[in-house]
Simulated scan of single mutants.
Amino acid sequence: MKNLLNNKTVLVAGAGGLLGSRLVSGILEQGAKVIAADINVEKIKVSLAALNIDVDSPLIKLLALDITNEDNVKSLFSDGSHIDGAVNSTYPRNKDYGAHFFDVTLESFNENLSLHLGSSFVFSQQCAAYFTKHRKPFSLVNISSIYGVVAPDFSIYKNTRMTMPVEYAAIKSALLHLNKYVAKYVSDSRFRINCVSPGGIYDNQPKEFLAAYRSNTHGAGMLDVESVVGSVLFLLSDQSAYVVGQNIIVDDGFSL
């Protein structure tokens, strides 16, 4: 279905990333204007140019956003821009992120929770505050994960240097409940906040991991990032009116 988002303006935080850039493309294709925000505007330009998107189009506004900076986030929602919806596809983390469980320090764990979950909190808070001020329909989509829903399968990481970071599990599971809290607090049908939880997304992982992961799915294995976009577009659109506080899992059966 085309033009799901006609006459809407959608903010994409993390627009220079693997998922964020594809979301910008998909949102534009559905007839919306996009406010593309990331900590590095040049990265947004490069990522969108690689998708043959004209960054000088009047349909796109590029903004620098440090989502871990509370004042920066607040100013984003107070600059007078009209916004109908937002997606938070950011992934802030520190230099020690990705360590194996016994190697994670309390300091590093707390810092990563603050960076990722903390920034998701303030972004969601300010989306809710924006709606409360303007009282016009608003849809917010946060990105969780299958590992916010089910426990990790550590067997698929054997024979690789990879692991499933403990911070990631804590953050993504907490994000699902944060969504429900915000939805109940605002308690207005015009304000919707939901999650999409992808399975693994292909990003040049080792062959051993890809094969092990695929054996836990119904055949697709690691997903192409484009597989996640449709669910986000649905939640941003009026087709999902009254879908509130929910989580759409896109994982080809991995979490079953």
Rank of each mutant, 00 (worst) to 15 (best):
H116A: 13
I44H: 06
F123V: 02
M222N: 03
V10T: 13
S47L: 02
E208H: 01
D103T: 08
F131M: 02
A36L: 02
D56Q: 12
L63C: 14
V55H: 07
V12N: 11
S139A: 14
G200P: 11
G17E: 04
G98C: 02
D252W: 00
L62T: 03
V150E: 07
V149P: 01
R161G: 15
G221I: 04
K158Q: 12
N142K: 04
A169Y: 04
Y97S: 00
G200K: 02
G219A: 00
R93M: 12
G230V: 04
L106K: 14
V243H: 13
N112A: 09
I146W: 05
I39P: 00
G199C: 01
G80K: 05
Q125T: 12
L76V: 00
R190W: 06
P92V: 00
K136D: 09
K158N: 10
D79V: 04
V244M: 14
L175V: 09
V104R: 03
E167T: 06
G219E: 01
Q126T: 06
V12A: 05
N110G: 10
C195Q: 09
Y130V: 03
G85H: 14
G219W: 01
R161E: 13
Y157K: 09
Y130F: 14
L4M: 13
H100Q: 08
A99W: 08
N204F: 06
I201V: 15
I249G: 00
N3Q: 15
Y147K: 03
L65H: 05
P198M: 01
